[in-house]
């Protein structure tokens, strides 16, 4: 079954066309990577999937329902988001930050119950940040902060997890840890959609990838078949070698740009 279906999605800012007729299906319980050069429209696409930007009627469907028909709080119970600018922490503690993920279930004053605290603790443990839950967000490292934001999204108990470049600024160890975490989550049924810059990460952790450029889908399908030398050249204008194996690697030919 498809968790997300996008049909002929267009979006412009002023005269500039950002998305130019995107049609994609994102399958449930898979890790789907969104790839493409800077300015290809990846973040814009993700913002339509999260409902932050409202698409036209009948262009984005979440489990068969038009996203426009979902109320903000109901949508937050289905879709969790780890945004790129999400590290604005305002001085909240790690625990408070993750508790905010419970918002769609709390009343207007954000009163939490024992249940909510238990769910938050579980999410903190899943993401390996339980031990630092009383620290302030500004006291922890970038890698830890990223995992806290994932924990916050998990506290929403969503069925779909959207992430905007979750590993771009992290060192290689954190990159692998976070991608493994996402993979584990998807094996438990979560639909994971993530913008990824690193082709090697995409190749090794994504089930499916969507390759974007100029607001159009250049290629989509399983990671192994989409990330090939021809598609890399067509999208990025870079010659590269792709070697498949237990660990697949993309090696750019540095002089052949």
């Amino acid at each position: 079954m498809n968790a997300i279906e996008v049909r002929d999605l267009h979006f412009s800012i002023g005269d500039k066309k950002i998305l130019n007729g995107i049609t994609i299906d994102i399958s449930q319980g898979m890790v789907t990577g969104i790839l493409g050069p800077n300015g290809a429209g990846k973040t814009t696409l993700l913002r339509h999937l999260s409902g932050y930007w409202q698409p036209e009627k009948d262009t984005v469907h979440i489990f068969g329902v038009d996203i426009l028909r979902l109320k903000p709080r109901d949508k937050a119970k289905i879709i969790g988001l780890v945004p790129q600018d999400g590290v604005n922490s305002a001085g909240f503690s790690v625990f408070e930050m993750v508790m905010m993920g419970r918002s769609p279930y709390l009343n207007f004053f954000g009163n939490e119950k024992a249940d909510d605290r238990k769910i938050v603790d579980d999410c903190l443990k899943t993401c390996g940040v339980y031990d630092i839950k009383d620290r302030k967000m500004y006291e922890i490292s970038g890698g830890e902060a990223q995992r806290v934001l994932i924990a916050r999204a998990l506290a929403q108990q969503p069925e779909i997890l959207l992430l905007d470049e979750p590993v771009s600024h992290l060192d290689i160890k954190y990159q692998l840890e976070i991608m493994s975490l996402l993979k584990d989550l998807s094996r438990k049924g979560m639909t994971v959609v993530s913008i990824i810059h690193d082709l090697n990460i995409a190749l090794n952790f994504c089930d499916n990838v969507i390759l974007l450029n100029y607001g159009r889908v250049i290629a989509e399908g399983d990671a192994d078949s989409v990330i090939n030398e021809e598609n890399i050249y067509r999208t990025y204008g870079v010659r590269a070698m792709v070697e498949k194996g237990t660990y697949s690697v993309v090696i750019p030919a540095l002089k052949a740009i």
Partner: peptide, 23 residues
């Protein structure tokens, strides 16, 4: 007063607040 919790969420940024269910 009825919006103080939403203000907490809005402090995190509009995109985060929106994803957490704030209109």
């Amino acid at each position: 007063m009825f919006h103080t919790w939403e203000l907490n969420l809005m402090l995190l940024g509009d995109e985060s607040a929106s994803s957490l269910g704030v209109d």
